[in-house]
Amino acid sequence: MLKTILLLAALVTTSAVNAADGKLIATPGVSQIEGAAGGGLVPWAQLAGYASRDEIAINAFCSHGNVDDFKLDVCGAQLNLYDRLELSIAEQEFDVEALDLRIRQRVLGGKIRLYGDLVYSRWPQVSLGIQYKQLDDALVANLLGAEKDSGTDYYLAASKLHLGAVGGLNWLWNVTGRYTEANQIGLLGFGSEDHDHELMLEASTALLFGRHLAVGVEYREKPDNLSLKENDWKSLFVAWVPNKYVSLTAGWLDLGEIAGIDDQDGLYFSMVGNY
């Protein structure tokens, strides 16, 4: 294990010259739970990694959320082509502890930058994204009244980083509109007899304390297609970005009611590697 880490470290440092590094440190954000570049819960307008218009970036991440009665593990990767197109994949494992049950979902994502640069353009960076989600097994989704075991989310995101805006600190905000029919992000299937796609609002904001530390909050509105009192999701996070190759995020999640069990909150950890 140690050998592997040392080898990886050596690889990263010796070939550092070729790694994508064409953005200010910490400005690309981290990875959200469906695999897009974002803030943990919400996909942002930034594309993953440090690729500028002349570079390609490859990123991998794993995240772990642990609330009272459920656990979510996600690992995934993104390819950023010339800061224009982001392609992503994420594998989610959702554990329902009381039932000793595991639900698996795969998310394939694409995001295209339509306008701007997070830091330098006058207006916010705007991107259009798509997330195609497929459940491994539709059993639970069907039992709860979901109509389908796969679905597609479409989103439009706008992000802006204001240099030195708040007491000299860099301030970032993002607003995302998502057109979705996913129940609990798809883990409980898609749509129901009376509901399909609806527009949901998501938002994030963060302050950068120095070049390496960001503290932020996120809000993600969610539909309630299954009439199970599905709540909006909230998070508070701290991200540490020691260099352009790795970032670590820790957060607090408030996920409300999930599948009839109330008060689901707990901790969130995530690690991203950029190259």
Binding site: D117, Y120, R122, L163, G168
Partner: peptide, 18 residues
């Protein structure tokens, strides 16, 4: 130069990128 002053200078330089 402290971080918050750095950012203020960067903010004034940023529009020149184009």
């Amino acid at each position: 130069v402290p971080h918050h002053i750095q950012n203020q200078l960067l903010a004034r330089l940023a529009p020149m990128r184009k």
